[in-house]
Design a protein around this nucleic acid. Structure first.
Length: 259
DNA sequence: ATGTCGTGGACGCCACGA
């Protein structure tokens, strides 16, 4: 089974590239983030023509997540039960069982800057994610949390840690919140890069950062040992970041041999 | 070097978020 995650930065603006990528890559399940569309505006028919069912959770202009699947969508849950809002709950998480694996598609709040209200919201959101995942782990040992975590877990995950010294994505509280997910037993499935020496997944649109490979690894796959142990390959599809009209994030693709 | 995108409101640009 092939699973993947991709922050598409608007599923409507990205639709031609998404459809082309689905045909080329053929994941069995794909977690999307930043769909930026309400549920009734999601291009459900277009992905259905390629054989995908979809579980959407969108609010309109901001945020929005979804899971596309060719292998079923069981027990769909939208949002984090008991989670924080800004001030109201936002569309940043959706879960479904796909081919026997429970997938969470998550779009962690950005945080804007350390100390900002949005930063505290980010930490509270991650704490709530931990609670929800821990509850799921009571029921299944086949689970993966996939998406845009907006946190670079280590200094190796940013092109120049000094540039981010006063920024979000690298602060100790953010890294501790992500590390706490690993504390439940989840494993960081680190993909291989298709080029260069580190698997960055995001490059700012500005300043030619992609061309210069000034990126970050913030799109993560955190899987239970039974899923991580079944990984036969994992890679960042940087080809999807090239050319005309890309997202600023590249997809992470994970192949599983679940037996 | 805050240099680029995407969205949507009230327009042919601006505010906002990332």
């Amino acid at each position: 089974m092939r699973i993947a995650t991709w922050n598409v930065n608007s599923v409507v603006a990205r639709l031609p590239r998404l459809l082309e990528w689905l045909q080329d890559t053929a994941p069995d399940a794909l977690c999307l983030q930043e769909t930026k569309v309400a549920d009734d505006g999601f291009p459900t028919d277009a992905v259905a023509e390629l054989g995908y069912q979809v579980a959407t959770h969108g609010d309109g202009r901001w945020n929005g997540v979804a899971i596309l699947s060719k292998v079923g969508l069981d027990d769909v849950v939208r949002g984090l039960a008991g989670g924080p809002g800004y001030p109201d709950p936002e569309a940043r998480a959706v879960a479904a069982g796909c081919g026997g694996v429970r997938l969470w598609s998550v779009y962690v709040p950005n945080g804007r800057e350390p100390g900002h209200d949005h930063y505290h919201y980010k930490l509270a959101w991650l704490a709530s994610l931990l609670d929800v995942v821990a509850a799921d782990l009571e029921r299944t040992d086949r689970l993966a949390v996939m998406g845009d975590f907006n946190v670079a877990p280590t200094d190796a995950d940013v092109w120049d840690p000094a540039v981010f010294a006063q920024s979000t994505h690298v602060t100790p509280p953010e890294r501790a919140a992500v590390q706490a997910l690993l504390g439940t037993g989840l494993v960081d499935v680190v993909p291989r890069p298709l080029k260069y020496d580190y698997p960055f997944t995001y490059w700012d649109y500005r300043a030619g950062n992609f061309h210069k490979n000034l990126g970050m690894r913030i799109d993560l796959v955190y899987a239970t040992p039974s899923v991580a142990g079944a990984v036969s390959d994992a890679y960042v599809d940087r080809e999807a970041r090239k050319g005309k009209g890309p997202s600023d994030h590249a997809p992470v693709v994970v192949d599983l041999d679940l037996g």
